[in-house]
Design a protein around this nucleic acid. Structure first.
Lengths: 139, 139
DNA sequence: ATGGATGCAAAGTGTTTGCAGCCAG
DNA sequence: CTGGCTGCAAACACTTTGCATCCAT
């Protein structure tokens, strides 16, 4: 799995086992883990790794446009390795944060851009409510 | 200015000078202040007031649906007394957070609701970029 | 060889909590 | 009078920083 290493190199980031592991966790999941989640997922594999390294690495990934930070409103930030902008859905019941792949966002942005003099560079869109699975449980 | 007191009472919140003052600051501004901003704005008027009271009051207002919390991505939360859901625009240059009054959000939500099985209860929408005033400065 | 990365501990920041005294209802 | 509110200090949770050591290049 050299793929990720190549990506890191292309962004002029040194490829260390820690970085590769952190990036891989983020890349292989859609669960939007927190720094602590990533740390916990890796501490068997890399017992000496520290939480500080996770934070520093996430920061490096963010700056290299390889990850984005989500602020869904709970105490800690979550991270996403899908950098194309997309809305997120946060379930009040199970707490899961899900990606929403849609093209309506694009139209919405265009509309807003038409209505205002604000130049949009990026956006964050969070929907809160009940996810599909939890809705079923409620019946 | 009994107005706000009446609102607080209608939500079964005790009307204290601190609460009234905090609510008034939030009600009279569109700047989306942080807890600390509110505290600073009031410490001449109410020198004994503590930051903890500001936090507790903001929490009470939130629970009574008289205020909402914004997480635009910087370190501290901002607050808004306009509770009807609306997007916010965050300027990268001046840092101002501005309300966006639009009805396109409603259509966007409808569209998303059509596309997914997620039941939307509320949402938070932030646009980041350059505001009107800062765009002028850049010329 | 060398500059950047790691990892530990300590510090920092925003927010919450416990509790005694106080005040609105 | 009574329960909720205030305000102080302490505790908390998440994140950042400093620095000596280490390692990818």
């Amino acid at each position: 799995m050299e793929e990720l290493a190549v990506i890191l190199k292309s962004k002029k980031l040194k490829v260390t086992p820690q970085r590769l592991a952190i990036y891989k966790v983020l890349f292989d999941t859609t669960s939007h883990p927190t720094a602590e989640d990533i740390y916990n997922a890796l501490k068997q594999l890399l017992p000496t790794m520290s939480l500080a390294t996770v934070y520093k690495t996430l920061d490096a990934l963010k700056k290299a446009d390889l990850a984005t930070e989500l602020n869904v409103g709970d105490d800690s930030s979550r991270y996403d390795s899908t950098i194309e902008s997309h809305p997120h859905m946060v379930c009040f019941i199970c707490g899961k944060v899900t990606d929403l792949h849609t093209n309506s966002l694009c139209e919405f942005k265009k509309q807003i851009q038409k209505e205002t003099d604000f130049e949009i560079v990026s956006e964050k869109v969070y929907f809160y409510g009940t996810c599909k699975d939890c809705k079923v449980q409620l019946d």
